[in-house]
Amino acid sequence: MNPGWVYIVTNKPRGVLYVGVTSDLEGRIWEHRNGVYRGFTHSYNCKRLVWYEDYDEIPDAIHREKRLKTWNRDWKIRLVEEMNPEWDDLFETIMW
């Protein structure tokens, strides 16, 4: 099995939302936090992990990511708030 993660990062509570997919959540969030790639998340300072889902297979995670990217902003906010009503940075709380 090749696991996958779908995640949302933001710059502040209810700020800019970025939906991404990865096979290495810890490594990918580290990259966001350290500005490894100069793209959307770097430009908007999206470093706070506020939501995630794990999948047994990366193709399932990719499918979910593509669906979430079509959602409107209010739906994504509701999704985050169901898991993380305070918009805490979950990166430090996940047990790797």
Rank of each mutant, 00 (worst) to 15 (best):
D74H: 13
I8D: 05
V21M: 01
W75F: 05
D54W: 13
R64C: 06
E31W: 07
R78A: 01
E92G: 14
I62L: 09
R33Y: 11
N72W: 10
E82Q: 13
H63A: 03
G20W: 14
E81D: 00
D88A: 11
P59F: 09
Y52M: 14
L49P: 09
D56Q: 09
D74A: 10
I94V: 13
N72L: 08
W75Y: 04
F91A: 01
K69C: 01
E26G: 10
N2Q: 15
F91C: 05
K47F: 02
V19C: 12
M83R: 13
N34K: 15
E92V: 14
Y44G: 07
K76Y: 01
Y37P: 00
Y37A: 01
T22D: 04
R67K: 14
M95P: 07
M95N: 04
D54K: 15
Y55D: 11
R67D: 00
K12A: 06
P59S: 11
G20F: 12
S23K: 15
W96K: 15
R64P: 01
Y37C: 03
G4I: 05
I8A: 01
H42T: 02
L25V: 03
T10E: 05
W87Y: 04
D74S: 15
D54P: 07
I8R: 00
V36R: 15
Y7F: 14
E81I: 05
R28N: 07
R64E: 06
V36H: 03
V16H: 10
G15T: 02
R38G: 00
V9Q: 13
Y18D: 06
G35Q: 09
L25A: 04
H32I: 04
N2V: 13
F40I: 09
E86W: 08
K12C: 09
V21Q: 02
S43T: 04
S23P: 10
V19D: 06
M1W: 04
E81N: 03
Y44W: 13
D89S: 08
H32E: 02
R67I: 04
I77Q: 01
V6E: 03
M1E: 06
F40P: 04
D89C: 14
D56I: 07
I29H: 11
N11A: 09
P59A: 06
R48H: 00
N34W: 04
W87H: 10
L49D: 03
R14K: 14
E65P: 03
E53Y: 08
E86T: 11
I77G: 00
N45H: 12
S43P: 01
N2T: 07
R73W: 03
E92Q: 14
R78E: 04
F91Y: 15
